[in-house]
């Protein structure tokens, strides 16, 4: 499981970098799918099987499908690739890289183990545990999220309405 974790994490890093530097929009999205799948593998090795399955079902299997769907429909050609290549210059990368470095440093200082290190994946998080947590201490968050989704649904219905 340790080895699987490191392999999946390496693939995730590689795929995410490819998402940024790839100039073909569909290829970039496919790298993003690969990145999500390897993150799901990371979740799996850590014992969060339910989160891993949801990562694949929701992100890779539904949201990314819609992304690829839209990009496919736009049918961006060689012109877009040239444009992307021009935009991907070294000066354009400086500020985003700096911003990412600050974010990484923040995360690192928060997550860095202080004195003790606990091994992950010792406990399997079952769907039942997730459900009890969601409908127990996090009930308010679930309700708020559902209201947000309902608002999104109503808005999408309104935008897709036929005027006749």
């Amino acid at each position: 499981m340790d080895l699987t974790f490191y392999i999946a994490a390496t693939i995730a890093l590689f795929a995410t970098i490819m998402v940024v530097i790839n100039t073909n929009p569909v290829h970039a999205l496919l790298y993003l799918v690969l990145s999500l799948l390897s993150v799901a593998t990371v979740f799996f090795t850590l014992g969060a099987h339910f989160a891993a399955a949801l990562e694949v079902i929701v992100y890779a299997g539904a949201i990314m499908v819609l992304f690829v769907f839209v990009v496919m429909m736009l049918n961006l050609g060689a012109k877009t690739e040239d444009q992307e290549r021009r935009w991907l210059s070294a000066p354009a990368m400086v500020l985003p890289a700096a911003l990412s470095a600050v974010l990484l440093w923040q995360l690192g200082t928060q997550l860095w183990p202080r004195g003790y290190i606990t091994a992950a994946g010792l406990q399997e998080v079952t769907p039942k545990m997730v459900g009890i947590a969601l409908y127990g201490p996090y009930l308010l968050a679930v309700e708020l999220a559902s209201m947000l989704l309902l608002a999104g649904l109503v808005a999408a219905y309104h935008l897709g309405r036929h005027d006749d």
Partner: peptide, 8 residues
């Protein structure tokens, strides 16, 4: 769940 993931 894994079946649903694969179907997705």
């Amino acid at each position: 769940l894994f079946f649903l993931a694969i179907a997705g």
